[in-house]
Each structure stands twice: as C-alpha cells, then as structure tokens.
C-alpha cells in the first residue's frame, strides 16, 4: 500500500514504453495519435481517459495517468483497438500489461470493481481447474449491497431458468497447479523495471 507514494504522483518514468514493450511485445512508441482505437472503443465514453490518451501517457512516461485512472479496469478486452490500429500496435495487450503492472504495484484505483472480479475469477480457476460460476458470482457480489441489488434481476432469471450448476466441476487440478507455479516463477525471474525500482525480490535500481 505504500507504493502509491513511493512511485510518487508526477515523476515521469521515461522508459515506461520500453517497460511495457518488454512485458507484452507491443511498441507504444509507434503510436501517432490517430485515435482509431479510441473511436472504436466501447467503453471510452465511460472513463476520463480513452485508449489513445493512455498510449500518449505511456509515451510521456506518465505512470500516474496510465495506472491510476479507472480506464484500464473498464476495458472489456474486445480487441477492436488491436484490430484497427494502423500502426499494428496490440493496444489491448498494452491494457493487459498495465493491469498486470497495476496489480503488482498494488495500484488499483478505488471503484475499479473489475479488478476484484478478475481476481476472484482467476482464484476459482486455480482452485478447481475450471471456473465455478456460482462461486464467482456470489463472491463478486458479497459485501457490496449496491452491486448485489443491481444483479438481483439477472440472478433471479438465471435461477428460474435453471441456468445454474450448483456444484463445481473439476479440471486437471494437478496440471493447473503446476502451470500456475511455473508461470509465476518465470514471471518473477523477469520483473519489469517498474518493479525493480521498488527493490522487489532483491533487485535494485541501476
């Protein structure tokens, strides 16, 4: 939780684009601000920033703008931006990379409810080897009366139509467990400079 202050508000991180490129392979430097990504983005209208502005913020090393805005937690992963970008930038992968960094840096803004849903979703997969839908829905709504209320009409209809499987099914739990730990080990061994800056895992900033 101390991270927000240690990354402190407006210190630009000039190599942010390179960091992101190392993580996901997309070259943000190629963005020439044509805004095709923003025009096609279904959720741009619901946030303060839209995809091309996020791309600009990354070029300028504005970690705070890129990470602390709600936008990356509204992105549905619809791939419209990636499909249309005339510069061939995988913009959706950049949004994923920002979410990965935000999670590791513990920088998830208030009101980013999707972050919690995605975490519970991944937990469920790790636990059972398959997604247990009932668990995901109930755990997502627990402790949030407003959300629960707004989901009630949907839940009722799902129940009436028996579209709910009460017990979990199991996948190959041993294989999933093994893949989770080996992928995490490899990710740990290849940290981003943003993480190094925090002296995580014994790395120190050059």
């Amino acid at each position: 939780m101390s991270t927000a202050s240690s990354m402190s508000a407006c210190t630009p991180q000039p190599d942010l684009a390179q960091t992101i490129g190392r993580g996901c392979g997309a070259n943000v430097c190629k963005c020439y601000q044509c805004k095709k990504c923003s025009n096609g983005c279904p959720v741009a209208a619901y946030a303060d920033l839209h995809p091309s502005q996020i791309m600009r913020a990354i070029q300028l090393g504005q970690v705070d703008l890129a990470l602390d805005e709600k936008f990356i937690w509204l992105c549905t992963g619809c791939q419209t931006c990636t499909t249309r970008c005339p510069q061939g930038i995988d913009v959706a992968a950049v949004m994923d990379e920002l979410r990965i960094i935000a999670r590791r840096e513990d920088r998830i803004p208030d009101g980013a409810a999707l972050a919690n849903v995605l975490r519970l979703n991944a937990d469920s997969i790790k636990r059972w080897g398959r997604l247990y839908e009932v668990e995901l829905v109930t755990r997502s709504l627990l402790g949030n009366r407003k959300k629960m209320k707004s989901y009630v009409p949907v839940g009722r209809q799902m129940m009436a139509k028996r579209k709910i499987r009460l017990l979990p099914e199991l996948g190959d739990r041993a294989a999933v467990k093994r893949m989770v730990s080996s992928s995490e080990r490899i990710a740990e061994a290849n940290p981003t400079p943003l993480e190094r800056g925090r002296g995580r895992g014994g790395y120190s900033h050059e």
Partner: peptide, 25 residues
C-alpha cells in the same frame, strides 16, 4: 479428457504466460 479452464480474461490480464499455457496444454 480431463480438460481444464481456458483461463479467460481473468488470466490473460494477470499472468500472460499462464494464459497461453492453459490452452496450449
């Protein structure tokens, strides 16, 4: 036989390598 979850959005926005490994498996 004994298939596991593809990982969906939850995994590819958290662990890129796992997101590719689950379906590849």
């Amino acid at each position: 036989p004994q298939w596991s979850c593809c990982g969906n959005t939850a995994v590819h926005s958290a662990n890129r390598l796992l997101a590719l490994a689950l379906p590849t498996h």
